[in-house]
Computed example of a mutant assay.
Amino acid sequence: MTSLTAFVVVVALVAVERLAELVVSKRNAAWSLERGGRETGRGHYPVMVVLHSGFLVAMLIEAWARRPEVGTALAWSMLGVVVAAQALRWWCIATLGRRWNTRVIVVPGLPPVRSGPYRLLTHPNYVAVVLEGIALPLVHGCWITALVFTLANAVLLTVRIRVENDALASLAHPDGRLADA
């Protein structure tokens, strides 16, 4: 198996993992909405979908077009980071349980989660996203994709984290008002 073929397999496995996430997310979003959950931040969600889908496609195009020479140490170390990022992502999903989804939906009356990776970091899932955004393309030396995605994702995360923080702050008020409103 060539290194390009192996890379395509790795990216395909990540894509399958993303589809599994979407199944879990859809089920969990329905659960939250049935319990009075309120969604915020709808405006940036389509941008996030396009960015993350484009990320998977872009690195494959770059790998095919550039055919970079990839050192074994770089490939294996970056694959290790990708695996660690996936583990962190699924630790976040398991910790949040039914409350995890890819949208920003909070259920009034449920306190913020402060266990698992959330006892260590406010937004651990985004640490996983950032790590993966850098490491996955570098498994096959796709530094252009890693750079462009990382910069675009940084802009998106400034919006996303602000929306999430505002939504979580609203949990402090039974009437759903934001903490600073």
Rank of each mutant, 00 (worst) to 15 (best):
R114Y: 12
I134T: 10
L13R: 00
Y118T: 03
H123A: 07
H173A: 14
V14W: 08
V129I: 00
R27W: 07
E69H: 13
R35Q: 10
S115W: 04
V155I: 07
V8H: 12
W143A: 03
R103N: 11
A20G: 13
Y45A: 06
R35T: 10
W100Q: 03
I161S: 11
A146I: 01
L157I: 15
A172K: 01
L19D: 02
D166L: 11
I61D: 02
C92F: 05
A172M: 06
R119L: 04
T72A: 13
L110R: 11
R35I: 05
V8S: 12
V81I: 07
A65Q: 09
G97H: 03
A75G: 12
V104D: 08
V70W: 13
C142T: 12
R35V: 12
V16G: 00
R42T: 06
W100G: 02
A154I: 15
V14P: 06
V9M: 00
I61S: 04
N28E: 12
L110C: 00
E62N: 01
L156P: 00
T150I: 11
W143D: 00
Y45D: 03
G176H: 05
Y45R: 03
V155Q: 06
L157G: 13
W31D: 08
A167D: 03
E132S: 00
S53H: 07
R98I: 05
H44I: 10
E62K: 04
T95G: 15
V82N: 06
H52S: 06
I134G: 04
I161T: 04
V81L: 04
S115H: 01
V106C: 09
R89A: 11
V10C: 05
A15S: 05
G97F: 04
L88C: 08
V23P: 09
Q86G: 11
A87V: 15
L110Q: 12
V8E: 13
G133S: 10
S77H: 15
A152W: 05
L147D: 12
T72H: 11
F7K: 02
A128F: 00
A146R: 07
F55L: 03
T72M: 11
P108Q: 00
R42L: 10
R67C: 10
D166C: 09
W90M: 09
E34Y: 11
R99M: 12
G109F: 08
G133D: 08
L4K: 01
